[in-house]
Design a binder for these strands. Structure first.
Length: 606
DNA sequence: CTAGGGTTAG
């Protein structure tokens, strides 16, 4: 689940919706229909107007990159040259270069200029263009390129469909991707190959469905398509991210026993996996193992080590690893330095963090929006809000556009510093700048409002979220419920709580805990216990924390025998009294107002 | 090096 959230991109309008307003050829067709038409090479009726793809570039001023500038320059020289190059291949080469530089937004306009100069694209060109649309989340246009194939008498091939599948996978539309995959199997003449399988496996992993991914891996073999190092590594990485290290290791052994050699990617995933659960010895063992096989750690492997050390607070060691990289002529990249910078930020060593930042700038603007967000976060955590603001201003000079994370980080900092009005101002500013607040942004602001007793504003904001169809989760509702409870507005909290299921949101243990605490605080003890009993049936069993909460609530209401009963129940279920419950009991004992039975129980529990 | 898949940072 965390994985999914992490990989979810900003809320963006569905490509079909946005395209339909612009007269896309496949306006009334579903992707399945379009793909079927292509696979069975029956020409679709709506195949003209493939060229009117006027979509505004979401990044009108991308940061300049010398390699990109170079590629664009060569392309335009070629377009201007007379006579024109007789082959489309050099054009394809440039487009490929741009894709490799991840400058997808340039691919489409260049392609259109080619068409205007009557350069006839080939199947390679069209596949590159589909890849461009895929990365730009414009799958409607990507599909529309299929029509272009037929117009030019070309045949879409396995790469075409794999690219489309990848496009849907990239944007969390795995069912769409799977549909194309099934259609390929059905049509028969354009069979999925190892890359097609690998792409869909990745999609399933992104959804957190490792077992479906493994099933597909097995299906590859049945279909006579040998799994390769990528097929295995994709699943191994996904298992590692879910901390299922043993399963990952099993798959790792399996690939080796089948003669598929792991590579640096496979090892890097495993090393990250074991580091993540603190198995340092195993990480060292894996490092030695890979080197003994002649597989050498690369910048990614080292970056994983740097990041892990930093997250453990071992930033000195992380810096040593960076120096080691440089000695070995493995240049740390922006990710390595961002990790190191965050390591300093986590320890509040902002001068050192700033030094890394300046070092990155000195390396020819090796900073991106993330670097700035990390530094802003560091300053905010150190209560140096004005320093953080300064970074935001500096971003403009560096032509970096603050994103949702940048704003959210600073809004959080302002809230935590009690500067709610400024936080709200920045919230409006980010929207004016075209950055969409996401769930996290709202959560941060809601938390700030609740902690500053601005509950009516918080509730208004919650309504705004519901109206804007922001994907709401239980964490957000729980924040507001907590705020209401703390303010003693138990009726409003109860209303919100009871309305959750109708919104399709399930309360979690923390939500119940907060409600029970709130009810106890108002002396609504029967209702509190009822809620505790309700939990099991809702598939959300109370934990030690819940029991401690209700027991403290009962004790605070002088219901010692009731508390004793629940304490006994808690002990029977294998939970024990926590420090603050103990403190409360000791306090009551000293006042000699406690049930002797409670004392006896307490002896058992310690 | 004419086209498609897997590993790193907030």
């Amino acid at each position: 689940m965390l994985k999914m959230m992490g990989k979810t991109s900003y809320p963006s309008s569905n490509s079909y919706c946005s395209n339909s307003r612009r007269g896309t050829p496949f306006l009334h067709s579903t992707p399945a229909v379009v793909v079927a038409a292509a696979l069975f090479h029956s020409q679709s009726k709506a195949t003209k107007s493939g060229e009117t793809h006027l979509v505004r570039d979401p990044h009108p001023h991308p940061p300049s990159n010398p390699k990109v500038e170079d590629a664009l320059k060569v392309f335009h020289e070629m377009l201007r040259s007379r006579p024109l190059p007789s082959s489309v291949i050099p054009f394809n080469q440039i487009l490929t270069q741009l894709v490799k530089l991840k400058h997808y937004s340039a691919v489409i306009p260049l392609f259109k200029q080619m068409l205007l100069r009557r350069i006839v694209p080939n199947d390679y060109t069209l596949n590159i263009v589909i890849n461009g649309y895929s990365h730009l989340n414009q799958m409607g246009f990507g599909l529309s390129v299929l029509a272009k194939f037929f117009k030019l008498g070309l045949q879409p091939n396995v790469i075409t469909f794999t690219t489309l599948i990848n496009g849907f996978v990239l944007h969390n539309q795995v069912p769409e991707a799977a549909r194309i995959f099934r259609q390929m199997l059905q049509a028969g003449h354009c069979k999925p190959d190892a890359v097609t399988f690998g792409t869909l496996i990745k999609g399933l992993c992104m959804r957190g469905d490792n077992s479906a991914a493994i099933t597909l891996l097995r299906k590859m073999e049945e279909t006579g398509c040998q799994p390769n190092v990528v097929s295995y590594s994709t699943i191994i990485d996904s298992l590692c991210k879910d901390t299922l290290i043993d399963e990952a290791m099993n798959l790792f052994s399996e690939m080796i026993s089948r003669g598929i050699a792991p590579n640096v990617v496979t090892y890097t995933s495993l090393i990250q996996g074991v580091c993540n659960i603190g198995r340092w010895k195993q990480a060292t063992r894996l490092l030695h193992e890979m080197v003994s096989k002649g597989i050498f750690p690369d910048v990614v492997t080292f970056s994983v080590l740097v990041d892990t050390l930093c997250k453990e607070g071992m930033v000195v060691e992380a810096k040593t690893v960076v120096q080691m990289m440089i000695q070995r002529h493995i240049e740390p990249n922006i990710i390595t330095y961002n990790s190191l910078m965050d390591g300093y930020c986590l320890r509040g060593e902002m001068d050192e963090a700033r030094q890394v930042f300046d070092l990155m700038i000195s390396k020819g603007s090796m900073v991106n929006v993330r670097s700035c967000s990390i530094l802003i976060n560091g300053y905010c955590k150190g209560k140096k809000i004005d320093r953080a603001y300064k970074i935001l201003k500096e971003m403009r000079l560096m032509e970096l556009v603050p994103d949702t994370v940048t704003y959210t980080t600073l809004i959080d900092g302002l809230c935590k510093a009690g500067r709610i009005q400024e936080a709200e101002k920045l919230f409006s500013q980010m929207q004016r700048c075209g950055q969409h607040p996401d769930v996290q942004t709202y959560a941060v602001l809601l938390d700030g409002l609740c902690n500053n007793r601005q509950l009516s504003t918080a509730i208004e904001l919650l309504k705004e979220m519901e109206a804007n169809k922001v994907e709401l989760n239980i964490v957000v509702y729980t924040l507001v419920i907590e705020g209401l409870c703390k303010a003693g507005k138990i009726e409003s909290a109860r209303d919100l709580f009871c309305g959750l299921s109708s919104k399709g949101v399930q309360p979690n243990v923390r939500t119940y805990d907060i409600m029970i605490r709130g009810l106890c605080h108002q002396g609504l003890l029967i209702e509190a216990e009822n809620l505790l009993r309700e939990m099991v049936g809702k598939g959300c069993s109370p934990d030690g924390c819940t029991y401690n909460t209700i027991i403290r609530g009962l004790l605070n209401n002088n219901e010692t025998s009731w508390a004793t009963r629940l304490l006994q129940e808690m002990l029977e279920r294998g939970f024990s009294a926590d420090a603050s419950t103990m403190e409360l009991i000791v306090d009551l004992l000293s006042k000699d107002t406690v049930d002797p039975g409670l004392l006896a129980l307490l002896k058992d529990s310690v």
